[in-house]
Write a protein that binds this DNA or RNA. Structure first.
Lengths: 213, 213
DNA sequence: CGATACATTGAACAAATTCAAAGCTGGTGG
DNA sequence: CCACCAGCTTTGAATTTGTTCAATGTATCG
């Protein structure tokens, strides 16, 4: 697949002239599924714009386990915090599917484009969106119990149970597969949900489900 | 105390003219210690700039307990996420000391000043700083054990033990006072720290302390 | 079919909280 | 100046929530 700067919504306010400048300080790079884009603790060198594929952000705990934080889909700016604050990446990023990022020389971008109000606005939007994500992560992990996390996930993404293995869903929820299994069993027994042969979930009692989170 | 718009670093790039405009859409308000600025779940009406005092951000879990998130000190923009994303406040804010905020009519600010690159830059800085805070909160609460949290806190803020009750420190760390007490006892027994009569902590073995987080 | 991955279940374990009781400490009033 | 009270702090035991481990059950797909 061929990617072009002007197709990136982020930069669609830029003049031809500015696009040329941007071209000079950036390039596209493609990755296979499971490849790492950056690793927690690394010093940032580039700013990334995800233009294709699914990119998973996760942290690693002292036991070596992956703690799921978020999954990016195009178009998304990635790594801006580390670049802005000139700090090591606080998390790792790995491609879940094959994908492509635009890699931008951060310092040059700052010098050339940070005075551009349109670019600024895009950055603000991106930061704001990310802050919302983080706020949600905090809520999910610090406030909700496992049962509440599962209930919320069913409410928001029940279709995923049809295509994604429970194992993977457990990983996304940061609970063990056993806990997910037991929680689903509990919800079934309470007649809040039912699960058919093809793993599809039907919500039988939506108010009761909502009560749980 | 008397506060003036032009003394707020946030707006020191604004012309006299613009300051006048800003004056029309904002006002200062003072609060006593323990007063709430906003409550989790509230719809945002204003954007706040903390100009005096200490403001605590916290969430409330289903058991009704306060989960400490962060403490702001001047000058800081507060509540921008809820305003930008037009979503309910994800946390509550309460004054720890008496304090003062500038309250700004958000919609008007957006219309008048978001095209100003200097203001944009200030907003980006503020968002970025906040993202860093959140990233740290996530690390502390999702990755670190209680012992690691205590060790990190000692490393970063050991002077606070002289003035702040262990109770309060436990609240800031989101651990029970019992856990804090037991952890300090453990660190003393391992000869990593010592605590004198006045509650001051001396770090005896800094490398060993760092090892813990 | 049969191998292999996935899901479920029970039991043991781990980390931290909660509950209860006892120990300190520092300020206050007699 | 001392005794005492209130509020911290400490300590032990029970509890809670979820993970880990191990065994068994069940799909699924070459």
């Amino acid at each position: 697949m061929e990617f072009k700067l002007k197709d990136i919504p982020f930069f669609n306010s830029l003049s031809e002239d500015n696009l040329k400048k941007l071209e000079k300080i950036s390039y596209f790079k493609s990755y296979e599924a499971d490849e790492l884009l950056f690793y927690e603790g690394d010093a940032p060198k580039k700013l990334y714009i995800l233009v294709d594929g699914v990119l998973r952000l996760y942290k690693t705990n002292p036991k070596g386990q992956e703690i799921y934080i978020h999954q990016f889909i195009p178009t998304a700016m990635v790594g801006e915090l580390a670049n802005f604050e000139n700090m090591p990446f606080p998390a790792s990023a790995r491609f879940v599917t094959g994908g492509t990022v635009l890699k931008i020389e951060y310092k040059s971008l700052e010098n050339m484009f940070f005075k551009n109000p349109d670019i600024c606005m895009e950055i603000i939007k991106s930061l704001s969106k990310k802050l919302k994500v983080m706020s949600n992560v905090i809520h999910n992990e610090m406030i909700l119990t496992s049962e509440a996390k599962v209930a919320k996930f069913i409410d928001e993404h029940k279709e995923l149970f049809e295509t994604v293995k429970n194992n993977q869903i457990a990983a996304i929820l940061n609970v063990s597969p056993e806990t997910l299994s037991r929680t689903l069993a509990k919800l079934k027994k309470k007649n809040i949900i039912s699960i058919d042969k093809s793993h599809a979930i039907t919500i039988l009692d939506h108010p009761a489900l909502k009560e749980l989170f």
